[in-house]
């Protein structure tokens, strides 16, 4: 059976369990790219147009690093994961953009995920994938369902694991870190922020520490309305954490020029002061960010938080 490469970027942080299990059940060998490092970042930056955001550049770097290690690289198309919740346009066009930017030198496998329309497109894409791998379509559907059940029982991948671990102590002083999962859980992109916070004896909360309904209830002003999925997660978490007594401050990590975050952080900043006096800082990261400057800002924020 062929080897499937899973890039450790973007969707991987939430859906690693699903895709790893799915391909293993199909009988394929799965290779996951290594953690993000300088080489991966640099190759991603050279492959993409300069306007592309940092996480997508990093994703390209991961795909590039898998090029010679796998027969196929898996790049799904996430349009919508839940009803009335959309992803950003970069996710909708990810397979094509990756293929074009890598000069068509890789073979991709893709699945369309769109919870907002009928399952027809998903079935078509799954059928195509099964044909490419020379497998029976019904078998692929069955294995997908199995993998999906496993994913649903298992808190969502890395994001879920870290989230549940961190939210253990109820009383210890904590910091909430918000942002897209691929920003806050990638140790290279977040400049080891989580480790730095823990070394200062602070517990860390993430959006994945909260349960789904709690987040959606507090996602002002988009309760029950159409919005971006990541936007709802962060809006809801910010307003939920604002009421937690043991949380000292909220850090929002955003990649430079992120369209979704530009609206979400503004909505949080304008509203959070009406709910509580929770300190809130937005840290912007791109491929030119230096660790020293980043650390200085984090330290200054923590000093300020400690004083209040």
């Amino acid at each position: 059976m062929p080897t499937i490469g899973l890039p450790k970027a973007l969707f991987y942080y939430q859906h690693s369990v699903l895709w790893e299990n799915f391909f293993q059940n199909l009988g394929c060998r799965v290779v996951v790219s290594s953690d993000t490092n300088k080489q991966i970042l640099d190759s991603g930056v050279t492959l993409c147009s300069s306007e592309t955001c940092l996480p997508v550049k990093v994703f390209h770097g991961h795909v590039h690093s898998l090029m010679n290690r796998a027969d196929y690289i898996f790049v799904p198309r996430y349009t919508s994961v839940r009803k009335d919740e959309f992803t950003c346009p970069k996710f909708c066009a990810l397979p094509e953009v990756t293929l074009i930017n890598l000069k068509k030198q890789v073979k991709l496998l893709t699945i369309d995920i769109n919870a907002n329309s009928s399952q027809k497109n998903m079935c078509i894409s799954l059928r195509e994938m099964a044909r490419e791998l020379k497998l029976n379509f019904e078998f692929a559907v069955k294995e997908f369902k199995d993998a999906f059940d496993k994913h649903a029982n298992h808190a969502d991948g890395i994001a879920g694991r870290l989230g549940s671990y961190s939210a253990s102590g109820e009383r210890e002083p904590s910091i909430a870190v918000l942002g897209h999962p691929y920003m806050i859980f990638d140790e290279y992109i977040n400049m080891k922020l989580i480790k730095k916070l823990r070394s200062r004896k602070l517990a860390v909360y993430f959006p994945s520490s909260l349960n789904y309904s709690q987040i959606r209830e507090n996602a002002f002003p988009y309760q029950g309305r159409v919005f971006w999925e990541a936007g709802l997660d962060n809006l809801g978490s910010a307003f939920t954490f604002a009421r937690y007594k043991n949380i000292r401050g909220i850090i929002y990590l955003t990649p430079f020029a992120c369209g979704v975050d530009s609206f979400v952080t503004e909505l949080i900043e304008r509203r959070i002061r009406h709910i509580s006096s929770m300190p809130f800082i937005k840290l912007t990261i791109d491929e030119h960010s230096g660790e020293a400057g980043f650390d200085t800002r984090v330290e200054a924020f923590l000093d300020m938080v400690g004083r209040t």
Binding site: C48, E51, T52, P89, K90, C92, V97, I100, G259
Partner: peptide
């Protein structure tokens, strides 16, 4: 406009379009 999400995707495909159809494209942000 700078940071427009859908147009960044479109811009990424232009390299391929210019090669396939031979039309020069200038992007102004």
């Amino acid at each position: 406009p700078f940071t427009c999400m859908p147009e960044i995707i479109a811009q990424n495909t232009f390299g391929e379009i210019q090669k396939d159809y031979g039309i020069p494209v200038l992007t102004l942000i």
